[in-house]
């Protein structure tokens, strides 16, 4: 298994809901707390596993706003793991999730330096490195309904811009999305082979168009009612 996320930059609106959901779930999760620094002062900050940044690509009027959520990409070539001198950083054999053993970390920051995506953040209060766990304490929890066994960021995303699944399974939703939409790896040239993929915005000219003739009003109303009741 190679678990990871697909993030659709076409539909992401940069609402930061995944950031909040991540923080909420993981503050009490296996790698928590995600310490906040001077939370009630002028410049609040703190540890986060997931950050969303927004960009303008192209020049007006041919420009587009793109939002890019960034958490751990659970790289196949995870140099954060190989540079770790203590063995605290590890990549799980069974599902490819990269984790930090909080009991072994000595807080040298070298893994954070080795990560090109800024996915690792040192928690000053505990002196150990923290990172996205792909909600490992949630996706295998059999006490949760099966639909809920997904990372918090995926479940909360209001625009369904985040997908969770197994990249080793060629028929999984994530594998199909990557195939159909040309899923990309950020900074692929560095050779870290991230598992997570980003779906680029759809080209406007190729947006899906209705290719059938217009249906009668009565049928369209009935379809709209059906969709409203049971999407």
């Amino acid at each position: 298994m190679r678990l990871g996320l697909v993030i659709d930059m076409d539909t992401c609106v940069g609402c930061q809901a995944c950031v909040v959901a991540c923080k909420q779930w993981n503050s009490s999760g296996t790698l928590g707390p995600l310490t906040d620094y001077h939370a009630y002062a002028d410049d609040p900050s703190g540890v986060a596993f997931n950050r969303v940044r927004s960009y303008e690509v192209g020049d007006y009027p041919h420009s587009k706003t793109v939002n890019m959520p960034m958490s751990c990409l659970h790289c196949d070539t995870a140099e954060c793991v190989t540079v770790c001198p203590t063995g605290a950083s590890y990549k799980r054999e069974e599902d490819g999730i990269v984790l930090v053993d909080q009991d072994k970390c000595m807080g040298c920051n070298l893994c954070a330096w080795a990560c090109p995506y800024g996915a690792r953040e040192l928690d000053d209060s505990t002196g150990v490195m923290k990172k996205c766990t792909l909600c490992v304490d949630r996706i295998y929890d059999e006490s949760l309904p099966e639909n809920d066994r997904q990372p918090a960021c995926v479940l909360t995303c209001p625009t369904h811009a985040r997908f969770f699944g197994d990249f080793d399974d060629p028929d999984s939703k994530v594998s199909r999305l990557v195939r159909d939409r040309g899923g990309q790896q950020p900074m692929a040239e560095l050779g870290y082979n991230p598992v997570n993929r980003y779906l680029p915005p759809r080209p406007k000219a190729q947006a899906e168009q209705a290719d059938t003739e217009a249906k009668p009003l009565q049928e369209r109303l009935r379809e709209w009612a059906d969709m409203s009741i049971a999407p």
Binding site: D43, S45, V47, R51, G58, Q184
Partner: peptide, 24 residues
């Protein structure tokens, strides 16, 4: 290459939460 958008110039609009004092 970081954004995967190689056809136009990219500029940061908003750096998200954190301000100027988180670990990164």
């Amino acid at each position: 290459t970081a954004l995967g958008m190689t056809r136009g110039q990219a500029r940061l609009l908003e750096s998200g939460q954190g301000g100027r004092s988180n670990f990164l």
